[in-house]
Amino acid sequence: MTDLLTIEGLSVRFSGLTALDDVSFTLEEGAVRAVIGPNGAGKSTLFNAISGYVTPTSGTVHLYGRELTRLTPHAIAEQGVRRTFQNGGLFPALTVLENVLTGLHAQTEGSFLDILLGRSKALKSEAENIHRARELLKLMSMDHMADTRAGDLSGGQQRIVEIVRTVASDPPVLLLDEPAVGLSPVARAQMMDIIHRLAGEKGVGILLIEHAVELVMAAADRILVMAAGARIAEGTPEEIREDRAVLEAYLGHS
């Protein structure tokens, strides 16, 4: 399998506090890797450092061998590493369709002047993207909600629309920050199905922060366990289940 994302020695220090301590791993095409750990383990810092919201103190991030370290968040997203947000990143006042279209921003052609003057180049590209956005919503059985304000959706629907928006541009790498939090069991199963399909059918490399243990065990090929900013274990779900260090980190000394 092709290596998509290569993380080497990534560290983040905030004035004396080490939030992320020398983390390295690779994410391959079609792989689902979960990142777990107690609160404050550095999972979100890892995501923020990869996606450019936090500048790493040292270490590198490469996608297809191209360095992404220290690029701005929008440049990293344009390169093909896209993420969702733990507390929901939808734009409530925009409709579902408009939200998905924001995910296709970089795919929409036409300069400012083309748009201003309503030139056909801009309109054609817009029409193509609208078509694509509707198709994507249809795949998730959300097409009947296209004109609903995103803020009026249920929590589970919002999570799904956010994922549709994030993958609309066909990014090779997807970072999902607690996609199942607050979801009903049915919605959770649907979320798991979406993750499987993205990785299995489209070959998206997925990095997943999640607290729902059953989802992690079922969805991930490999699990990275973190505590206090550092990696304490890594392996398949079966290996992690047996790992002493993990048990200690989660349950204290037993």
Binding site: S51, Y53, T72, P73, H74, A75, A77, E78, R82, R83, F85, G89, L90, F91, P92, A93, L94, E98, L101, T102, G103, L104, H105, A106, T108, G110, F112, I115, A122, E126, R165, T166, S169
Partner: peptide, 21 residues
């Protein structure tokens, strides 16, 4: 257009907007 959507997106959630390139 994508410009108008971006303007609204910045208002609604600037952090998430940047994540969409």
């Amino acid at each position: 257009s994508r410009f108008g959507r971006s303007v609204m997106a910045v208002r609604e959630n600037e952090v998430a907007t940047a994540s969409l390139a």
